[in-house]
Each structure stands twice: as structure tokens, then as C-alpha cells.
Computed example of a mutant assay.
Amino acid sequence: MTSLDLFSNLDSEPLSSDISQHATLFHQFLAEDDDALLSDIRGVLRHSPLRHIQTPAGHKMSVKSSNCGEYGWLSDSQGYRYQKTDPMTEAPWPEMPSLVRNKAIEAAVLAGFDDFRPDSCLINVYLPGAKMGLHQDKDETDFTKPIVSFSFGLSVNFLWGGFKRSQKYQKFQLQHADALVWGGNDRLRYHGVQQLKDDVHPITGRCRINLTIRQAG
């Protein structure tokens, strides 16, 4: 993660666009705070390092992952789940940085979700070639709470599908400092990320960093 040593700020104002009924993309929402947010995440990763996790079927995910907050999302032979301790360190996950939490709540409120109390932040780092297949986020206890996704670094094509994996999906680009929020009737839509193309971003280098902030408990 040495690529996180370089930072800069962007000056453009955030713009929003509706992806579907209860999904909103806020362009450049994090631009003024990207330096501080990435510094906070770098601190988290010093305590709970990135690792490749495996699906219950034994396949290694192409992204590297870690967590912060009260709960961390995990996958292994025991299945998909949240738990309060990092199996690598056998310690509680690092505390979610206050700036991450506050920006997630702010984005959720702007998207129309007032009662969001995030307690879990999944950190995924994509190197060129990494991707995330179409999936639902359904390991949480309360589906009335939204999902907030922050993007940093290289741009990637995001897949926004229906309520079955076989349904057609639309595709749009997530760029550095974008925030995407979805919930309500869209909460259980299938979504994913196309393979990351090789390039260099002036802030993160050859990678994309994604934070997925949820209310898990």
C-alpha cells in the first residue's frame, strides 16, 4: 500500500445523478477529504493488513480486503458473515475512523436515508485485473439500512443489475472521490465491478480503493 503515500485534492463540486429509484451517485463527493480519508485507511491497514479472502467454495477473491468498525465482513469455508474480531490478528477490528463514518452518514442523508448508523467498513483494494462478480449484499440484519460505497484511485466500470443475477444490468463509471448510495427498493439489487484496467492514478498509483460502509448489526 505504498501507493497511498501520495495524495492531492480536487476542486470540482460534487454532482449527483440518480441510478435508479433509491440509488444515487455523488460525483466528487469526497474530493475535499480524499487525503485525510486515505490516510485514515492506511492507519487501519497497519493494524489489520490486507489479505486475499476465499469464498465458501474455496476460490480466492481477486481483491485484497480488510475491515474496520465494530463488525468485519468475512468469507471462508464457514460461509459469508460478519464478526467482531480479525482472524488474522485475533484482535478486534480497528475502530472505524470518524471521518469515514461521518462522510458515510452525510452521503446517506443526502440520498434520503436519515437513520443510518454505520458499524462496518469493508476495505477492498483492486490491482489491475481484479474484479467483483455480480452479487447481493444480504449478510446484514436490517435491509432497511442503505449501503454507502466510496471510490478512490483508478476508475472502474460498476455493474448495476436487477434482483436476479440473470437479469440485464446497466454499466456506469466510478471515479476517484465518488460516493454511491443505495437502499430502499434497490437495497438487494445485484451489483459488481468489471475487471480493473491497468493504469496509474496520480493519488493511488496502480490501484483502486473501495470502502463499503454498512450497518451490519
Rank of each mutant, 00 (worst) to 15 (best):
G205H: 04
F7S: 14
K171N: 13
A31S: 15
T2M: 07
D11L: 09
L4W: 03
D35V: 11
L25W: 08
D119C: 07
D137A: 08
D18W: 11
G205A: 09
P146S: 08
S62V: 10
W73M: 10
L50Y: 00
G112Q: 09
A216R: 00
D115N: 15
I147P: 00
S75T: 15
G58P: 09
L15N: 11
G184Y: 04
S98H: 07
P92S: 10
V193K: 04
G183N: 01
L38S: 06
E90W: 14
K168P: 00
D34P: 00
K197I: 10
K60D: 13
T141Q: 13
M132D: 00
I209A: 10
Y80H: 14
R187G: 01
G161D: 06
V44W: 03
D186I: 04
W160K: 02
L45R: 05
P128Q: 05
W73C: 09
E95Q: 14
R208Q: 08
L159W: 00
P87R: 10
Y169S: 11
R51H: 08
M96D: 04
G184W: 04
R187C: 01
D34T: 15
S166R: 14
L30V: 08
C207F: 07
E106Q: 15
R165Q: 14
G69D: 02
D86Q: 10
G184V: 05
K171R: 13
K131I: 00
H47P: 00
S3Q: 09
I53L: 09
L74Y: 15
L4C: 01
L196R: 02
H59V: 12
N9Y: 14
D186G: 00
R208W: 06
F172P: 05
S151W: 02
V100A: 07
N124F: 01
R51L: 04
V193Y: 04
G112H: 09
P87N: 11
L6V: 11
L159D: 01
Q173W: 03
L154M: 03
S66W: 08
P14W: 09
S48E: 03
T2L: 09
E140L: 02
E70D: 12
A179D: 02
V200M: 11
L211C: 06
G58S: 13
P49F: 02
V109W: 06
F143V: 11
C207A: 11
V44M: 09
K197Y: 05
S20V: 07
S66N: 12
K168N: 11
D40F: 01
G133R: 03
L50D: 05
N185R: 14
G205D: 04
D33H: 15
S155M: 03
D137M: 06
W93L: 08
R189Y: 01
V44N: 05
D178V: 06
D119I: 04
A36S: 13
W93Q: 07
N157A: 10
T89Q: 12
R117I: 07
D35T: 14
R42H: 12
G58H: 13
L196S: 03
M1F: 06
C68P: 06
Q215Y: 05
D137P: 01
D139V: 04
L10T: 03
